[in-house]
Amino acid sequence: MTIPLLELFVFATVLCGFLGIFLKKNLIMKIIAMDVMSTGVIAYYVVISSRDGLFTPILGTVRQQNYADPVPQAVILTAIVIGFSIQALMLVGVMKLAKDNPTLDSAEIEKNNTP
């Protein structure tokens, strides 16, 4: 019964991140909440790939039966890199915005920049 419990935690993380995105007022906090959400998603891929076993899927002299599934792990690596670069881009954008109007309050920034 370990996997369902893990899944539960993973989904709780995703939900917390998602709620943070619209409950937090500070733009930086919103971005961090998004990161929490993406951490949850990444963790879910890892949980799924460890369904059949926990051993690193590398062929060696000792034959193991219960290898972890390498495909979701390989796929999520790409997603991690993408998530990281988006995060970096967004933080640069926020830095520039905050320099010009000294606030990080998202409602304030939105009000100033909406026609």
């Binding site: 998602f18 919103k30 998004m34 959400m37 998603v41 799924i48 495909v71 979701p72 954008g93 915005l97």
Partner: peptide, 30 residues
């Protein structure tokens, strides 16, 4: 400032949507 905000808003929304999409994708794989 405005173009930065519009761009940021776009990236934020599409990235959050794509995170949900990723969960869906792994469920299909599962």
């Amino acid at each position: 400032d405005r173009s930065l905000w519009v761009a940021l808003r776009y990236l934020f929304i599409s990235n959050v949507a794509m995170l949900f999409y990723l969960i869906g994708a792994v469920l299909v794989y599962k």
